[in-house]
């Protein structure tokens, strides 16, 4: 990406706002529009924006690939694990009633946990997809440069 001061400054100003928005959407999802899916995409978009402007290598320093790759199954596990916990507490799979002191509280907590699982999976999957595509693009660029240098 070409160096443009405007782009860099604007991105730096926007990034915290986007991340805050993602978290707001995540935890305010039961009261307003939003939830794990949207928040995951928004959070991934923040890192992707950073990667597009400052280079993917920089983005990988902030959010390393190993973390992303662990987070993909982790989200699914959080979701499925919630179901297992409710089985252990003597209810049906994915029935959150026993998680809290009152049924409604349990449901509330269950929704929050499950939404968090969704968030983790969606955000990390989007990010992982972006990393591999972007990594390919960088490799292609380097190869083109090397070939030009060789000839």
């Amino acid at each position: 990406m070409r160096d443009t001061v405007i782009l860099r400054v604007v991105v730096k100003v926007l990034l915290p706002a986007i991340l805050m928005f993602a978290l707001y959407v995540q935890f305010h999802g039961e009261y307003g529009p939003g939830g794990g899916f949207q928040a995951g995409v928004a959070a991934a978009a923040a890192v992707i924006l950073y990667g597009m402007v400052f280079g993917i290598a920089e983005a990988r320093k902030v959010v390393p690939r190993s973390i992303v790759n662990t987070m993909i199954p982790l989200g699914v596990l959080i979701f499925a694990g919630t179901g297992v916990v409710s089985i252990l507490l003597g209810e049906n799979y994915l029935d959150y009633t026993p998680l809290g002191s009152k049924p409604a509280k349990g449901q509330h907590l269950g929704i929050l946990v499950v939404e968090f699982g969704v968030f983790v999976t969606v955000a990390s999957t989007m990010l992982a997809i972006f990393y591999v595509f972007g990594g390919r693009a960088d490799e292609a660029d380097e190869k083109a440069k090397n070939e030009e240098g060789g000839e």
Binding site: F37, G40, V41, V122, T125, I129, V132, F133
Partner: peptide, 15 residues
Amino acid sequence: TAIVVGVATIALGLA
């Protein structure tokens, strides 16, 4: 959910 799944499958197709 279909939208998010849709983008995941399209990413697979692009790959």
